[in-house]
Computed example of a mutant assay.
Amino acid sequence: MAAGESRAEEIGVPCNIAVVDAGAHLVAHIRMDGSQLGSITHAIDKAFTSCAYRRSTEALGRDGQPAAPLYGVANSHQGRVVIFAGGIPLVHASRVAGAVGVSGGTIGEDRSVAEAAFAAF
């Protein structure tokens, strides 16, 4: 989370950063000063989605488009599934150990912050 927060500060975008464990349960969350309140749920749900589907939310978004194999996936899990960038699974020894989710900026900014947190894992 510290690496993600550092990247968010570097690009000047206050974010919410969430981490879930292998069971997709929230284990950590930070809301940076000035970040959007609506981004709290998005960050947590991006982490949940990435862990539950064992892929980035961005990749799931590609597979969730009309005529794609997972079209409609965004309507599952009582609306918790997020299909845009910012969620990345944390993989260790070929197993998903959890995931990080970031929300607060543009799609590219969220991706950048999540990638920084992932790289520190």
Rank of each mutant, 00 (worst) to 15 (best):
residue 54 R to M: 13
residue 63 D to T: 12
residue 24 A to M: 02
residue 28 A to N: 14
residue 49 T to W: 01
residue 83 I to C: 10
residue 19 V to I: 14
residue 39 S to W: 08
residue 43 A to Q: 10
residue 21 D to Y: 07
residue 71 Y to C: 11
residue 82 V to T: 06
residue 53 Y to T: 07
residue 70 L to C: 05
residue 93 A to F: 03
residue 33 D to I: 10
residue 83 I to F: 01
residue 107 I to K: 11
residue 107 I to N: 06
residue 59 A to I: 13
residue 94 S to P: 11
residue 45 D to K: 11
residue 107 I to A: 11
residue 44 I to P: 11
residue 83 I to Q: 00
residue 43 A to R: 06
residue 78 Q to F: 14
residue 63 D to K: 06
residue 82 V to G: 01
residue 12 G to W: 03
residue 28 A to Q: 08
residue 7 R to D: 12
residue 19 V to C: 13
residue 21 D to L: 02
residue 116 A to C: 04
residue 25 H to G: 15
residue 117 A to I: 00
residue 93 A to D: 14
residue 14 P to G: 10
residue 2 A to D: 15
residue 12 G to T: 06
residue 116 A to M: 04
residue 72 G to W: 03
residue 91 V to N: 01
residue 25 H to I: 13
residue 110 D to R: 01
residue 78 Q to G: 15
residue 66 P to S: 04
residue 36 Q to G: 14
residue 11 I to V: 07
residue 83 I to K: 02
residue 119 A to W: 03
residue 106 T to G: 05
residue 69 P to E: 04
residue 58 E to F: 07
residue 88 I to P: 05
residue 115 E to S: 07
residue 110 D to A: 00
residue 22 A to N: 13
residue 62 R to D: 12
residue 53 Y to K: 05
residue 108 G to T: 14
residue 117 A to V: 10
residue 96 V to Y: 04
residue 113 V to I: 08
residue 20 V to P: 08
residue 68 A to I: 05
residue 28 A to P: 13
residue 58 E to R: 04
residue 55 R to E: 10
residue 115 E to M: 06
residue 115 E to K: 03
residue 100 V to F: 07
residue 111 R to Q: 09
residue 10 E to N: 09
residue 82 V to H: 01
residue 56 S to W: 01
residue 90 L to E: 01
residue 15 C to S: 13
residue 55 R to G: 10
residue 40 I to D: 08
residue 119 A to M: 09
residue 68 A to T: 10
residue 97 A to I: 14
residue 60 L to V: 04
residue 66 P to H: 01
residue 101 G to H: 03
residue 4 G to L: 06
residue 55 R to W: 06
residue 76 S to F: 15
residue 13 V to K: 13
residue 84 F to I: 01
residue 105 G to Q: 00
residue 46 K to A: 07
residue 115 E to T: 00
residue 50 S to L: 05
residue 80 R to F: 09
residue 118 F to V: 14
residue 71 Y to P: 04
residue 9 E to R: 14
residue 39 S to Y: 11
residue 97 A to R: 09
residue 94 S to N: 15
residue 89 P to T: 02
residue 7 R to A: 15
residue 70 L to G: 09
residue 60 L to G: 01
residue 57 T to P: 03
residue 57 T to E: 00
residue 86 G to V: 02
residue 10 E to D: 11
residue 60 L to T: 01
residue 2 A to L: 15
residue 4 G to N: 05
residue 111 R to P: 01
residue 65 Q to R: 07
residue 61 G to W: 00
residue 106 T to F: 02
residue 52 A to H: 13
residue 53 Y to M: 11
residue 25 H to P: 11
residue 79 G to A: 05
residue 90 L to Q: 05
residue 16 N to L: 12
residue 55 R to D: 02
residue 60 L to M: 08
residue 42 H to Y: 13
residue 18 A to S: 05
residue 39 S to C: 13
residue 8 A to S: 14
residue 113 V to M: 04
residue 67 A to S: 12
residue 24 A to R: 09
residue 119 A to D: 13
residue 4 G to A: 14
residue 95 R to W: 12
residue 105 G to L: 02
residue 32 M to C: 06
residue 87 G to H: 01
residue 48 F to V: 07
residue 47 A to V: 08
residue 99 A to R: 03
residue 4 G to P: 11
residue 119 A to P: 05
residue 4 G to Q: 07
residue 68 A to D: 00
residue 116 A to S: 06
residue 57 T to Q: 03
residue 63 D to P: 10
